[in-house]
């Protein structure tokens, strides 16, 4: 991946809102045709970064370039070649599906007919409802219409701000399939999401927190680089388990992870630690104890990075 020439370049971007530092010296590069995921919790700065890229917001310092174009000075050209789907549904709810699409096609000097092939896969699914007002569509259909409108002018770069937030699991999976097909057509895609499980769908992910990019890597590499060994612990006494594990001497990180607890240790080998933990928990009247080493996911990597201080 690194060998491809940079197509989009974020260079030392900073932005603050009053006291809040939304972005602090963010730098990263994307190759043409890449699908980059921006992953992080709410308030990490994902939306701000994408809004700066789409020329909706000016950075306090730093620059963003797309090929030869600067997003601040060449914003007119940028707007012609970038498609943006905001996090909030931003089409006209009082216009019909068809009217919205025609309107956005026309103001980009194109027509639905001309670019129908681009959006056929997506628009095809909502075309039976084309006379319905956009405001009356379901969440998944709204999202497909928004994507159609963002693609209608055949952009080279597609920017999606949390497109899957508030969408059901099936629609989310469908959506990623659609994004992949867009990528097949040569469109570079920047997508933000708060869902860690979607990271695996991206070519590379940028993990963001508190206005900083902690790492930009392929998801598999991030998982492989997990520092130390990760264990999953479960007992019948989950309520007090977390506090008791935190009190264990050798412990490094302890996270509640759905129904289980994920933890790492400062030293110790796998063979030694499992019986030690089991004994420790037995002494404290836990039953149905299960302790096993597991392969870390993106979320584990993210949480461990949040705990370790980052170089700026």
């Amino acid at each position: 991946m690194k060998t491809l020439p940079a197509f989009i370049r974020f260079n030392q971007i900073s932005k603050h809102f009053g006291e809040v530092k939304a972005l602090q010296y963010v730098s990263l590069e994307l190759a043409e045709g890449e699908l980059m995921g921006f992953i992080g919790p709410d308030g990490a700065g994902k939306t701000t970064l994408l809004r700066i890229f789409t020329s909706l917001m000016l950075p306090d310092s730093g620059s963003v370039t797309l090929g030869e174009l600067d997003v601040v000075t060449d914003y007119k050209k940028i707007r012609q070649i970038v498609g943006y789907m905001p996090g909030r549904f931003s089409l006209y709810p009082d216009l019909t599906v068809e009217e919205n699409l025609h309107f956005y096609a026309r103001i980009f000097n194109t027509s639905l007919k001309q670019n129908y092939h681009l959006i056929r896969d997506i628009y095809g699914q909502i075309e039976p409802f084309k006379k319905r007002r956009a405001g009356d569509l379901s969440g998944g259909m709204k999202q497909k219409l928004a994507l159609s409108c963002a693609l209608i002018h055949h952009p080279r770069v597609l920017v999606l701000d949390e497109p899957t937030t508030g969408v059901d699991a099936v629609s989310r999976m469908e959506f990623w399939v659609l994004l992949k097909s867009m990528q097949q057509q040569g469109i570079t895609i920047l997508v933000s999401t708060p869902y860690m499980d979607e990271a695996a769908q991206c070519d590379r992910v940028a993990l963001m927190d508190h206005g900083k990019v902690m790492v930009v890597e392929r998801p598999s590499v991030i998982e492989d680089n997990y520092p130390g060994q990760l264990f999953s612990v479960k007992t019948n006494q989950m309520y007090r388990l977390l506090a008791e594990l935190e009190a264990y001497p050798e412990v490094k990180h302890v996270f509640r992870f759905g129904e289980v607890i994920h933890m790492t240790f400062n030293s110790s080998k796998e063979e030694e630690i499992v019986p030690l933990i089991k004994d420790y928990l037995k002494q404290r009247n836990h039953e149905q104890i299960s302790v096993s080493r597991i392969k870390p996911g993106i979320e584990d990597c993210f949480l461990s990075m949040m705990e370790t201080p980052q170089k700026a």
Partner: peptide, 13 residues
């Protein structure tokens, strides 16, 4: 208020 200006603002209007 309803956010439609976001989408308009990224167009070449």
């Amino acid at each position: 208020e309803i956010g439609t200006i976001e989408q308009i603002n990224v167009t070449p209007i």
